[in-house]
């Protein structure tokens, strides 16, 4: 463990590249204060995959890595829809997943918002309509905000959270 801590102290803060860092720095205060004002300091997100290729999930997981460290801004991914303010929805709303997505939405206490993530839930990915797909998501749920991209990069997701917070 001593080896680890000495390395930890030497490493210091991680930076992606100067531009991303500058942008993060510029928006993090506003993000943090909006989360404080509108969600009492913590915005809880329940991520639901309704049939994605798993790249959107990988990018959401990347939000927790030391480069982005989303939790320091007061935004958390939670395990249960009952703890959530927002459902972050990725994927094509497959025939098999749609009833479960709607179930999860029902479990989120009001007030609640749905944010669609990536090209799939709005049917803008290269995938074409088949009998097994129920997208677009707006046919089933009220969508408060959409994050475009295939998949959206972590910094784009953070940027989109800011736009969403300003909007509501």
């Amino acid at each position: 463990m001593i080896r680890f801590w000495s390395r930890r102290l030497k490493t210091g803060l991680l930076t992606e590249n100067p531009e991303v860092d500058a942008e993060l720095k510029a928006i993090q205060n506003e993000l943090k204060s909006l989360v404080a004002k509108k969600f009492a300091g913590s915005l809880a997100i329940r991520m639901v995959d309704s049939g994605s290729c798993n790249a959107c999930e990988a990018e959401c997981n990347a939000l927790s890595n030391p480069y982005y460290d989303l939790e320091r801004l007061g935004i958390y991914f939670v395990a249960s829809p009952r703890h959530a303010d927002v459902m972050l929805l990725s994927g094509l709303m497959t025939f098999n997943m749609t009833p479960h997505v709607l179930d999860a939405y029902k479990q989120i206490p009001a007030p609640k918002w749905v944010i669609t993530l990536g090209a799939c839930p709005v049917m803008e990915a290269p995938f074409e309509q088949t009998f097994a797909i129920k997208a677009p998501a707006e046919d089933h749920l009220p969508i408060a905000h959409h994050i475009p991209g295939c998949p959206p990069e972590p910094i784009e997701i953070i940027r989109a959270f800011l736009v969403f917070l300003r909007k509501i």
């Binding site: 049939g51 497959t94 098999n96 997943m97 479960h100 074409e128 088949t130 009998f131 097994a132 797909i133």
Partner: peptide, 11 residues
């Protein structure tokens, strides 16, 4: 499994 079944083969 098969909750994510998108029918890629047919597509």
């Amino acid at each position: 499994h098969f909750y994510k079944y998108r029918a890629i083969e047919k597509m």
